[in-house]
């Protein structure tokens, strides 16, 4: 069974329908990059996957959990889904270390000591081994985002969701964050990445999904999507993005 199954997903805010019936399946170990113009519903879609937005209609099944089923314990599902936000959302009153260990310790997944060890390893992975005791505000944007990735990984998720993880970063910081994500992908993590980094999508994605106007317009292997776009909507988008 596919890891993520989305069927006929709709989401409206009042009269404004943002998602108009999406269908998508993501396999184990697959890296899916979602691209498309602003306002096309990519972020809303991603947020629906861990119930930060409640769909108006449709079904989402993640690792066998049906989100629309009232009996599903959403906290348990979320433990299996790591999420990285555009604005990092680190907890400013906690140190880097405490940011990473808060959830595993609170949810009794790990003892304080084990969580600390795990956190140190994760910080090494994201290249911030020396920042364990730093406060988030003393870090650069790129460093904060890498801590946020480590924080999500600390829960040992089965899927990682990235919501425009590099959009709020200075250009020179983007590379470090993308490198961490590449490492993750190479390690076999199932990932759904909403991004404007076409280079990253081309290089890392197993599949690229193009969204516009609340619908998936086209999807396929990166080479197909980037080099042989079929729909005029995608051709238009790529022209604009690549010719900037």
């Amino acid at each position: 069974m596919a890891k993520v199954i989305v069927k006929d997903l709709h989401k409206s805010y009042g009269d404004n329908e943002v998602l108009k019936g999406l269908n998508l399946e993501v396999e184990d170990n697959e890296v899916v990059c979602m691209i498309g113009p602003s306002g096309s519903g990519k972020s809303t879609f991603l947020r629906c996957l861990n119930d930060l937005e409640v769909p108006t209609q449709g079904q989402i099944v993640i690792s066998g959990y049906d989100l629309s089923d009232k009996g599903t314990n959403i906290n348990l599902v979320r433990e299996n889904i790591g999420m990285v936000f555009q604005h990092f959302n680190l907890f400013p009153h906690l140190s880097v270390m405490q940011n990473i260990t808060l959830a595993p310790v609170q949810l009794k997944k790990e003892s304080k000591e084990t969580a600390d060890t795990t956190a140190h390893e994760l910080l090494k992975t994201v290249g911030l081994a020396d920042k364990a005791d730093a406060m988030p505000n003393s870090l650069s944007g790129g460093q904060q985002q890498r801590v946020a990735i480590a924080r999500a990984l600390a829960m040992k998720p089965k899927i990682m969701l990235f919501d425009e993880p590099t959009s709020a970063l200075d250009p020179e910081m983007v590379g470090d964050v993308l490198d961490v994500m590449k490492k993750l992908a190479a390690g076999g993590m199932t990932m759904i990445v909403v991004t404007h980094e076409m280079g990253f999508a081309k290089e890392v994605a197993d599949r690229v999904v193009f969204m516009a106007d609340g619908l998936i317009q086209e999807s396929g292997k990166p080479d197909d999507v980037f080099d042989h776009p079929k729909s005029p909507r995608l051709q238009d988008f790529l022209n604009k993005v690549i010719n900037v």
């Binding site: 861990n50 930060l52 906290n75 348990l76 979320r78 433990e79 889904i81 790591g82 999420m83 936000f85 604005h87 959302n89 680190l90 907890f91 400013p92 009153h93 808060l102 959830a103 609170q106 949810l107 946020a148 924080r151 999500a152 829960m155």
Partner: peptide, 25 residues
């Protein structure tokens, strides 16, 4: 808002998120 979202997305229940993340701030 992102603070609550980040806390919840880690799997923390509402009250834990409130107590550990929102209230101290």
């Amino acid at each position: 808002n992102g603070q609550m979202e980040a806390a919840r997305s880690l799997g923390l229940p509402y009250w834990t998120a409130m107590r550990k993340v929102i209230m101290p701030q």
